[in-house]
Design a protein around this nucleic acid. Structure first.
Length: 594
RNA sequence: GGUCCGGUAGCUCAGCUGGAUAGAGCAUCAGCCUUCUAAGCUGAGGGUCAUUGGUUCGAAUCCAAUCCGGAUCACCA
């Protein structure tokens, strides 16, 4: 069904062309806004663009257009022109029709397939340490955007490219070999990803000591950093791994296995999942043949020492290395190969990379190179760039131990949910299991909402000391609103169903709710186009705000008459569905009671 | 230095395809629970939309310059 705003655009364009055949306006030429609360009306057509072209004064044009709209279209019941703005009042019947059609639609907002296939790569962790708070932003964003696109009609593949090889893993490995004494997650009771992370920290501690020791013997710092024995040993491990050394390969598999088990626990707690896993150990050698082709095409060039480059200076960028002089590949090379592999696997129309803004340049170059190479996957590449999550003290650095651990954060949020629920005396009538579930829903919901409510590209500062609020612009507020509605719906005994509304029967808050509810599919579409879950955070919050005002002002179960009761119950039902569905797109559950 | 991103209320953020007197939340202050859940509602105070210039009937929004903050520009990943 066409949205109300689009109906207005169509009607206004038609009316203008009827009144002024020379106007030749299209739907897209009509600017429709919500009418400001201080004026009478629901939606406003901005007249200024036509004042000039049609050489009419705003008042005359507004009156003519308004009269024509009212005469030709029963969805409008009144109009008023104020200073170039044509304020239109919608018929209650229009909104009643909308309500009748949707109030029982549990999947309200879900669009039919649009034939578009898109891959979202997100999470993509390193396997040498547990997830931290900053990673959560990536994970929540990726999952949510995938869900939004899916609901908006796209076929979506959620992919995870695991960075399971490289020097960083070898650092954990060498520290474990030196100091682990055979420790395992089972023997220590430590979650696998944390155990491996502990040895990564250990590596850095030892490395610092060794460097300091060398400096004390008179070495230059830079030299000492290169010669520290533990670093040399880690580099040796990497070489042995690449050479296929069985012993090393087995340890690598074992420790990665610990990490995956740990990650799985965290992913599961957070409700995150993937359709396709890629591992860099399988992809890091890809891309070399693309380089060969690029050389033949003349897109790439070889320097005297044998290294291969692309010249992007004409595009305002630099020269970029693609193969080292010794023929080995760099990060970019393997990303070129992986992009091609993904496209071969799925042939998707677009490929979204959820990656921090520190890699803006890298992603720009990646896309540009693929375009220059004429790869069909190139144009569909989109970098969903997001800002870093920082602490008041600055960036989180895992090597310096200033990270906020993801698992700790989850525990803390759930603990906080429990504390606040108990403090508010809201635990009555729940079983222990129900309470555990409720605390999880509230705690994790708060965490997700907090990280999704800000536009992705903005960096955000998180102050753990202040902790996260459960009031105001939060998931908790929205969840609470849902629980309030459900409480009413549980008590309603009558069967309610389609109804007819006469003129001017809707109270202002009833009408506002219906207008907002009607906008929901448009919000999903916007969020999908912008890859921006925060649009849904804002929408769900505004809807809950309006509902709470409505709840305060109007009785539902004890409404003035049966008609009103039925109407309000239907509005309640659709509001609950819309809140639940909108929050589901963010990966946030809503409770029946809280 | 080149490129990119950000700068809106004390704090955290919406608003940015140009439209009416720039909005929320938190914090502060004042009200509202014998009535469907007060994790709520109502109201008040709080602004040079970084600065300057330009385009326009109209600029927080577009353009240019400047200032501030951040990212990035490795034969690292």
């Amino acid at each position: 069904m066409q949205s109300i705003v689009n109906q207005i655009k169509t009607a206004a364009a038609l009316a203008l062309n009827h009144l002024y055949p020379e106007a030749k306006v299209t739907d897209e030429d009509i600017l429709v806004n919500e009418t400001k609360p201080e004026f009478k009306g629901d939606y406003t057509v901005v007249l200024f663009p036509f004042v000039k072209s049609l050489r009419q004064n705003p008042a005359v044009l507004g009156k003519a257009l308004g009269d024509q709209l009212l005469a030709s279209n029963p969805v409008f019941t009144a109009h008023e022109t104020v200073a170039g703005f044509l304020n239109l009042t919608l018929a209650d019947a229009l909104l009643a029709n909308f309500l009748n059609a949707t109030y029982a639609d549990q999947s309200y907002g879900t669009q039919a397939s649009n034939g578009n296939k898109v891959m979202i790569e997100y999470s993509s962790p390193n396997t040498n340490k547990p997830l931290h708070f900053g990673h959560l932003r990536n994970n929540f964003l990726g999952w949510s955007v995938a869900q939004i696109l899916k609901t908006n009609g796209s076929e979506v593949i959620k992919a995870n490219l695991v960075n399971d090889r490289g020097i960083h893993i070898c650092k954990s490995m060498i520290a474990w070999m030196r100091y682990g004494n055979g420790a395992t997650p089972e023997s220590t009771g430590i979650k696998g990803d944390h155990l491996v992370g502990d040895y990564y920290v250990k590596f850095n501690d030892v490395y610092k000591e060794e460097v300091a020791g060398l400096v004390a013997t008179g070495k230059e710092l830079a030299q000492a950093e290169k010669e520290a024995p533990i670093m040399l040993e880690a580099q040796d491990l990497l070489r042995r791994w690449e050479a296929g050394d069985a012993e090393i390969y087995q340890l690598w598999e074992t420790m990665n296995g610990w990490v995956y088990k740990g990650f799985d626990v965290t992913y599961k707690r957070l409700g995150l999942d993937f359709d396709k896993m890629y591992y860099e150990s399988n992809t890091y050698l890809l891309g070399k043949e693309i380089v060969e082709e690029g050389l033949q095409q003349g897109v790439l060039f070889r320097k005297d020492n044998g290294s291969v480059w692309i010249d992007l200076t004409a595009d305002g960028l630099d020269e970029k290395l693609l193969l080292r002089a010794d023929g080995t590949s760099v990060y970019m090379t393997q990303d070129l190969g992986t992009a091609k592999l993904k496209y071969k696997d799925y042939g998707m129309d677009s490929s979204v990379y959820v990656i921090g803004d520190e890699q803006n340049y890298h992603m720009q170059v990646l896309k540009l190179i693929l375009q220059k190479l004429g790869e069909p996957c190139a144009d569909g590449i989109y970098h969903l760039s997001y800002g870093m999550v920082e602490l008041p003290s600055g960036r989180m650095k895992s090597r310096e131990g200033t990270v906020v651990d993801a698992d700790d954060m989850i525990d803390e949020m759930i603990r906080l949910a429990k504390e606040q629920t108990e403090q508010a005396n809201k635990t009555e009538g729940f079983t222990e299991e129900e309470l555990e579930r409720l605390y999880r829903i509230i705690g994790i919901g708060a965490l997700k909402f907090y990280l999704l409510r800000v536009e992705p590209r903005k960096k955000m500062i998180f102050d753990p000391k202040e902790s996260i609020e459960l009031a105001g612009f939060t998931a908790t507020f929205i969840q609470y609103t849902h629980a309030r509605i459900k409480s009413i719906l549980r008590r309603s005994e009558i069967a309610y169903g389609p109804m007819v509304l006469g003129k001017d029967e809707l109270a202002p808050l009833e009408k506002s709710l219906l207008l907002q509810l009607e906008q929901y599919p448009g919000i999903i579409d916007q969020a999908a186009r912008e890859f921006n879950p925060s649009a849904l955070c804002n929408y769900a919050f505004r809807l809950a705000q309006t509902y709470n005002s409505f709840f305060d002002k109007h009785q539902v179960l004890k409404a003035e008459n049966e008609e009103k009761k039925q109407l309000r119950l239907m509005i309640c039902a659709l509001t609950a569905i819309t809140i639940r569905n909108a929050m589901a797109l963010l990966g946030i559950e809503v409770p029946e009671r809280m």
